[in-house]
């Protein structure tokens, strides 16, 4: 008991210290400028009444910067472009599209007067001219619709943030996250054991069943990945972001493995407390469900018409709740089993 208490105590102190360290020093840079404006652009006979807008801004010092811009056209037909010019008149960041959310790479910029130049384009030549001027190697392959008469109300946002790259404090912040994660896992592993050990102990039948479970999970992942590859080859598009599709495969295979082991009484080890394990699953499941529901209300689930990365909390929560139910029913069934 003393050993367990000591581990939990040290873990708590470490967590508090590392969180403090992260918030004190692990900031991700300073936003230099952040503006937002809305344009009502009228297109008649394929010509926009406003061709461009210029927003100047000043960088007070040399450094590494990241630029971010978004705009969202409700209707097809208006292609917007942003080109950011440095004091020498060279383009340092350029992006075009009907609806855009883009970040620049980290770029070294000198102090001086810069211009964020927005172009409102209604024909392919104008888009190609801007892309060529920016020196980009590739043209976008989106099938744009050009010169549709109407009024376009588009809100543009631009920000520029100074970064220090991966400075020592940011590295420490990331390290803190990893350490906190590791400590939490150790604490949970210790608390769910009946003998205070971290390592789970399985008997020979359980090891055998776990091996079969691993095999089943592996084949599920392999078939799922083959299915994704087929979809890619056949150019079948689904409104789900790639990272969500890939992560779903991991969740699916891990769940198949876990449910197989639970059904075969090989998931909970000899020195684990099933109730505590189920509580951990419930807590993680509810936490993820709540975060997922909050994303639903804030509109973060769907981005650009596809199920975005933030939907993973909801998916993960649903999987955890399923596991919790399976563990619960398995434990209830146990009591009736003994002859």
């Amino acid at each position: 008991m003393k050993k367990k208490g000591l581990i939990i105590g040290i873990a708590c102190i470490c967590i508090v210290l590392l969180i403090g360290l992260y918030f004190l020093f692990g900031n991700r840079g300073e936003t230099i400028t952040d503006f937002r404006f809305t344009e009502d652009i009228v297109v008649e006979n394929g010509v926009a009444d406003i061709a461009e807008s210029e927003i100047p801004f000043t960088l007070g010092e040399d450094g590494t910067y990241v630029m971010h811009t978004t705009w969202n056209a409700k209707e097809d037909g208006m292609i917007s472009g942003l080109a950011v010019y440095n004091p020498a008149g060279e383009i340092v960041f350029c992006v075009t599209g009907e609806s855009v959310e883009a970040d620049s790479i980290e770029v070294e910029l000198e102090a001086g007067e810069y211009i964020a130049h927005y172009y409102y384009m209604t024909n392919e030549e104008a888009v190609n001219a801007l892309v060529e001027k920016s020196g980009a190697d590739e043209y976008g392959d989106e099938p744009y619709t050009y010169a549709v008469n109407g009024t376009y109300e588009i809100t543009y946002q631009f920000s520029i943030r100074k970064t220090d790259g991966m400075n020592i404090w940011l590295c420490l912040g990331v390290l803190a996250g990893v350490v906190i994660g590791a400590i939490l896992i150790i604490v949970v592993l210790t608390l769910t054991k009946t003998d205070g050990n971290i390592e789970p102990k399985y008997d020979e039948r359980q090891l055998l069943e776990r091996g079969k479970g691993f095999k089943l999970g592996f084949f599920v992942e392999m078939i799922y990945t083959a299915f994704l590859i087929l979809m890619y080859i056949m150019e079948i598009k689904v409104p789900v972001a790639t990272e969500v599709l890939l992560f779903f495969g991991i969740l699916l295979s891990v769940s198949v493995y876990a449910i197989y082991c639970i059904r075969k009484e090989a998931y909970i080890s000899l020195n684990e407390n099933a109730k505590k394990i189920n509580i951990v699953f419930l807590v993680i499941g509810i936490e993820n469900l709540l975060i997922g529901v909050s994303h639903c209300f804030s509109g973060g689930m769907i981005q650009d018409g596809v199920l975005a990365f933030r939907s993973l909390n909801l998916i993960c929560g649903i999987f955890m709740m399923i596991m919790s139910i399976v563990i619960g029913t398995s434990q209830m069934g146990k009591k009736e089993e003994e002859e």
Binding site: D203, E204, R205, Q206, E265, L270, K334, E337, E338, E339
Partner: peptide, 11 residues
């Protein structure tokens, strides 16, 4: 040193 389910499965 095994689980109850293992004894049950053997029986």
């Amino acid at each position: 040193g095994v689980s109850r389910q293992t004894i049950n499965a053997i029986e």
